[in-house]
């Protein structure tokens, strides 16, 4: 009665199997039975049609065709099949939920950019509508591209690239500061732009055409375009 090692790495928890406790470690795991506890592994997890996990799941790639009561956290991704049911929060860079799947909980995707705000899309949109010169727009577009490219590497690269294309970074910071202060002043119900701002001299191309309801993004952009 010899016991040889199984050829494939993956583990299977059979349909009649019940684990009361946590599962950890590494390797792929298919759960057809029931787990009352957390499953934290490095590897793929498949919760089959009749499988149940009453606890949280944390693994590289998670496919749910059964029932999960607990949070599901996938380092690579989560796939919820049509027969899948999750009562808990989902977090993964990529999440797929098929039609018919039942999910109740919050969903968070794209974790690798979670700490970083997108580069203020409101800033970019009005650029096409109005004021600034074409060259500014071009640079603006380029900058946005570079931000997108460097998203995975993080803020530092973004900052330095922006500096390379967009002049010294202190200027950028000043612009941000100004914008923040303007937002603040708007919040205090003053529709007219605050006085004493260096960018608001009437000779400027945007300042001239300003309605009492200022469009901040255009405004900021115009100021920048002018300075350049």
């Amino acid at each position: 009665m010899a016991i040889e090692r199984p050829a494939k790495m993956s583990s299977v928890l059979g349909a009649t199997a019940v684990v009361i406790g946590n599962i950890r470690g590494e390797g792929d795991l298919e759960i057809r039975g029931k787990v009352q506890g957390d499953v934290h592994t490095r590897g793929r997890i498949l919760i089959a049609d009749q499988g149940q996990v009453l606890g949280s799941i944390d693994a590289t790639q998670i496919t749910v065709a059964g029932l999960v009561r607990g949070n599901v956290n996938g380092q690579d991704g989560i796939q919820v099949e049509a027969s899948g049911q999750i009562e808990g929060d989902l977090a993964a860079p990529r999440v797929g939920i098929e039609a018919g799947a039942r999910v109740r909980g919050s969903l968070r995707t794209g974790m690798e950019v979670s700490g970083k705000q997108p580069p203020e899309p409101a800033d970019e949109e009005p650029a096409s509508l109005g004021g600034p010169k074409a060259s500014t727009r071009l640079i603006e577009g380029k900058k946005q591209l570079s931000v997108k490219e460097s998203r995975s590497t993080g803020q530092a690269v973004d900052e330095s690239q922006a500096e390379a294309e967009d002049g010294p970074s202190y200027e950028k910071k000043r612009r941000r500061k100004r914008k923040a202060s303007r937002k603040k002043s708007e919040a205090s119900a003053t529709n007219s732009p605050p006085s004493g701002e260096p960018t608001e001299s009437p000779g400027q191309n945007v300042g001239a055409g300003h309605s009492p309801q200022p469009m901040i993004p255009t405004f900021v952009k115009g100021a920048k375009g002018h300075r350049r």
Binding site: S11, V19, G21, E26, G27, G37
Partner: peptide
Amino acid sequence: AETIISSGLIIDGNLQSDG
């Protein structure tokens, strides 16, 4: 076997099965 727990895996608890 119906249930296979391969070498990298650790179960902190009890395992019960009909299979």
